[in-house]
Design a protein around this nucleic acid. Structure first.
Lengths: 201, 201
DNA sequence: CGGAGGACGGAGTCCGAATCCGGCGAGCAC
DNA sequence: GTGCTCGCCGGATTCGGACTCCGTCCTCCG
């Protein structure tokens, strides 16, 4: 088991490394929490430590409503807003912001939150805005198509999710510091016949 | 009609005296508000004034979701949280905090909000906590009974909503600076027969 | 026009301190 | 004696602070 002082240190520091490894019961409120609970830590004298949520529960504590210590690890509620963020990332990668009528607003609605809140989650967990992430995804897709195929740039831009060739060129250049065709030229040579045929089609 | 500069002054000051007398439309967002809207006021250059909600609406603005300018005055939503506070005051006056198992928590639930929020509303609109209001109501009821009847003090305390004679004495003395019987003694004499009969019953 | 992000208010949660509360007696007045 | 008042005390509630989440509106910018 964990040391008493070690737990105390992890508790006041809200150390994520200890999340799930012990639980704290507060005598005055009869509530038990995870080490990472966002609420101001209770005074040390009122705290007791338990190895599992069940132990705290059977000692007469109820679970905190903020950190949800009663939910099993890996349950969506365990990660809090992280889970929502990851769902959003997956949806963006699947093109949720690429289609013409798509919007951050619509994406947020699909996730059951407001657009402003989605922006905040991205700023906190990802460090970039939803549209920035979408842009990066599009560039990655385009890069893969450039490397793997000989499709013309117009086709690549469309397939990658760009609404216009103009945007594709600009954004691509911002990321790679050179135009799309420069990347293709660097590629190791393949069968010249195949390449020429694909380009023509 | 109202002066343009007068409206502007009322708007930035959120003057309640002008509530309902004009409405402000914001050009950039196509939203119209009441003068008392809690949102940070829009920059003056983007604002236009309208005498009625209908005028703003027909000019292409939609109603703000915070101050609800489209609802008629006297509609509960018009007053916002004031309405909730007044409902709470009425319930307290009707004894919602007097019965033995009653609590601020339960009262707040009846109103559809949390206990903390109810406290905040009272601090803002009433200037006293829910239990303080309840106590004052009880004292008032007791005072009326002392003046109007010859019931024994135990009975008055119970009818007024006090849970114990002990509390009744303490609280009454805090308000009136003297014990309950002192008030009754000051009362102008009535028919002695009536008084004696009531006391015996 | 649409997205990003600042400002702000409303509301929920927990905490610690303050208070409220009711029972038990002991005086006290009538 | 009988009913009223009040000091004391331990436990239950309440209060207000600190914090967070979230939605709405606003301005700026591309």
């Amino acid at each position: 088991m964990l040391d008493e002082t070690e737990c105390e240190q992890a508790r006041v520091g809200r150390d994520p490394a200890y999340d799930g490894r012990f639980f704290t019961g507060v005598r005055t409120t009869r509530i038990y929490c995870r080490p990472v609970c966002p609420v101001r830590p209770a005074r040390g004298a009122n705290v007791r430590f338990y190895p599992t949520a069940a132990a705290a529960e059977s000692a007469g504590f109820r679970p905190c409503l903020r950190c949800r210590p009663e939910t099993a690890p890996f349950c969506p509620a365990w990660n809090g807003s992280r889970t929502t963020t990851e769902r959003a990332l997956r949806l963006i990668d699947d093109g949720a912001l690429d289609s013409d009528d798509a919007s951050v607003e619509a994406l947020a609605t699909r996730l059951g939150i407001g657009a402003r809140q989605l922006s905040r989650l991205f700023a906190k967990h990802v460090g970039a805005s939803p549209t920035q992430v979408a842009r990066t995804c599009r560039v990655q897709r385009a890069k893969r198509l450039i490397d793997a195929t000989d499709l013309p740039m117009v086709e690549i831009a469309t397939q990658a999710g760009f609404g216009s060739l103009r945007r594709f060129n600009t954004v691509f250049a911002e990321v790679y510091r050179r135009p799309p065709t420069a990347i293709r030229r660097q590629r190791p040579a393949e069968d010249p016949l195949t390449r020429r045929r694909d380009r023509a089609s």
